[in-house]
């Protein structure tokens, strides 16, 4: 099986989908410069650099998507999405509904986020929950190159606007990627490790931290189940509920601010629908309500680490049910 980085997996997905469907186009901040191979194969009309103007990039994608193209736009860093909020939230997310279903918006927005490069809070801000909270949008955040490729292919084929977040810390990690043109449905989580005692739910780079924590826990005789959500909307509620139904204990882990984050939604879901299964309180581990510092130790401290996750899970397993 070929080995690719997540960054190259994105390029492979773009290449395959642009070959498959001539309505797929890609434009954004430096995409024609950095992904020269796409320009070489598909030409400068289908792969374009743009001004550094996120609003018009996203707005152009919205207009193009509504009238027959399938644009993929690269807005570089997630905090830059603030400049594109009207276009993504008010236009892409709402105009299908507001027009009574007359239009659909098959577009993908790529944005990088997360700790790893010490770029500071205006380049690193995990804003994915904002878009989960906005109707009409789908949200994906893969944790491996293979998933990134297969999910991006599905996102491009999807008739809805998809926010596709790339974790900076994972971008250049290599991983095995199937050579065939595999897709993965949006909205399906994956169970990376089976366990009976506690469920660790995560997405993005903290999936690896959960897997490391599960190793530590195994050494303590605790069998942790690790779930990678992969998509945040649609959310694979069944995968979460099935696992918690088995383990009775839940730790939700993400790098984004804990306050009103995805973890809060998952905790509420489990409290509402699996309360009787719970043997211990739900634990949420997430970033603080603070901008992310550039300084490396502070940046890393904002991310739930494996030791913290393992300790939280071990405490849950030690607690006796009431």
């Amino acid at each position: 099986m070929p080995t690719l980085t997540l960054y190259d997996a994105v390029g492979a997905a773009l290449t395959e989908e642009m070959r498959r469907d001539s309505s797929v186009i890609a434009f954004g901040e430096g995409i024609a410069t950095k992904r020269r191979e796409l320009v070489d194969e598909f030409g400068g009309l289908r792969v374009r650099n743009t001004p550094l103007a996120e609003g018009i990039i996203a707005g152009t994608a919205v207009g193009a998507a509504a009238t027959g193209l399938r644009p993929v736009v690269d807005l570089l860093f997630a905090p830059f999405l603030c400049y594109a909020m009207d276009e993504l939230v008010n236009s892409a997310g709402k105009l299908r509904y507001m027009s009574g279903g007359q239009f659909s918006f098959p577009l993908v927005t790529l944005a990088m986020t997360g700790a790893g490069w010490g770029v500071g809070a205006q380049h690193n801000h995990n804003v994915e929950a904002w878009f989960v909270h906005s109707p009409g949008l789908k949200v994906v955040m893969p944790s491996t190159p293979a998933d990134a490729k297969a999910l991006l292919k599905s996102a491009i084929r999807d008739d809805n606007p998809v926010l596709f977040f790339l974790d900076i810390g994972l971008l250049y990690q290599p991983g095995e990627v199937p050579a065939d043109e595999q897709t993965l449905p949006l909205g399906r989580a994956t169970v990376l490790r089976n366990g009976q005692d506690v469920t660790l739910v995560s997405y993005g780079k903290t999936v690896q931290h959960c897997q490391q924590a599960a190793e530590t826990l195994a050494g303590q005789g605790i069998a942790a189940e690790v779930i990678d959500l992969r998509s945040l909307k649609p959310l694979d509620e069944a995968a979460i509920l099935t696992s918690v139904g088995k383990t009775g204990r839940l730790v939700v882990v993400h790098e984004a601010n804990r306050l009103c984050g995805i973890g809060a939604e998952i905790a509420a879901l489990v409290a509402e629908q699996a309360f009787s299964s719970l043997k211990a309180p739900i634990v949420r581990l997430g970033g603080p309500d603070a901008p992310i510092a550039a300084s490396y130790p502070l940046e890393q401290a904002s991310v739930p680490q494996a030791a913290t996750i393992a300790a939280a899970a071990a405490r849950l397993c030690a607690a006796q049910p009431a």
């Binding site: 707005g59 509504a66 027959g68 193209l69 644009p71």
Partner: peptide, 18 residues
């Protein structure tokens, strides 16, 4: 206000490319 302006280039891009 202004959203029509942000979407117009995309609609014109479709006209041109298709």
């Amino acid at each position: 206000v202004g959203a029509e302006l942000s979407m117009a280039p995309g609609v014109a891009l479709s006209q041109t490319m298709l």
